[in-house]
Design a protein around this nucleic acid. Structure first.
Lengths: 168, 168
DNA sequence: CTAAATTTTCAATAGTTATTGAAAATTTAG
DNA sequence: CTAAATTTTCAATAACTATTGAAAATTTAG
């Protein structure tokens, strides 16, 4: 396979992959493009390579910066802004896990804690099934939280040993 | 908080949570409803409790069955079909991980293997950046695959010890 | 069989999310 | 400052996804 074709393929697939995980296709494609680009790209470069509008490019670049997956870089003697992506995928994974945990898992655990204290007699089948389900989800969620926290802090080299420690 | 309100809250939140992960809101809500229901529910029960149409209920129930998160049950003396959800959340997590891995991670790794063999001179900066990025993603993906395979096979009780083994 | 009950399908449509593109705001070189 | 370059905003609209509801298909009781 030729480089140009392989690049196309990767950008398209990364975009499709993203949509399955609730990530905007364009955002994932811009990220992919920057991942495989040796040099920083300008908004114009991105617009051209992905055939998207300026507004779309701008919005999604900003979102990527907000997720700390992309950085603005200044190129000497250039007025335009340029952008690069973090190339270390392990860091990228950690960053995404960190953000999604903060935005989604933490609030969910907070809600579960409230729902577990529902009023009513535990001998009532309806109440028991509900509180049992919530407690069960809370427990698994709590486990996930601990694991993810370790993963977020972990340097790849001590990923293994750290992961082992949390279960001590 | 009263039980009825807590149930509502849980179903709504589970639905919202699902959408952030690329899962249809109704599908997640039906799943939530069945998780906290002591007895199996019919399509009519689900339609009524979620205020959705028969078609919508049918489609999403079928999708949940396809994901093996929901089962049809026969209620003696009843003509209608009834449905239950697996109540053990640990099993649910494993099932979801198993399906998503099969549907998404495995094909992605297959693609990365192809893309890594792109034609061209490795001394070319463009080629090198591309193959390095792909190799890097492939490596992290491979690590994820091993971890998830262990998680899928793991019984909760030996979750810990199994997880430790993969990194030996 | 027959017909009532139930489930499934799917075209029409509603609802949601993404994208455009041009105007407004901001930045910077001179 | 001034004006050109660049970035940002956002209303309009396109594209995509979910939902309805009624007709068709299937199942089952008698």
């Amino acid at each position: 396979m030729k480089l140009a074709e392989a690049k196309q393929q990767f950008v398209a697939s990364w975009g499709a992959f993203g949509t399955q995980w609730g990530i905007n296709r364009t955002m994932a494609q811009i990220h992919a493009l920057l991942l495989i680009s040796p040099d920083p790209l300008s908004a114009d470069d991105i617009m051209e390579q992905l055939s998207i509008s300026r507004g779309n490019a701008n919005m999604n670049i900003r979102e990527l910066i907000d997720w700390a997956l992309v950085n603005r870089v200044i190129v000497a003697g250039e007025r335009k802004e340029y952008f690069t992506a973090e190339k270390d995928i392990w860091k990228v994974v950690r960053q995404i896990v960190k953000e999604r945990k903060k935005r989604e898992l933490d609030p969910m655990l907070k809600l579960l804690d409230e729902l577990e204290n529902v009023e009513g007699d535990k001998r009532d089948k309806e109440v028991k099934t509900f509180t049992d389900a919530i407690a069960n989800i809370r427990r698994v969620g709590g486990q996930a939280e601990k694991t993810l926290d370790t993963l977020i802090k972990a340097d790849e080299s001590w990923f293994i040993s750290s992961l082992m420690k949390i279960f001590k």
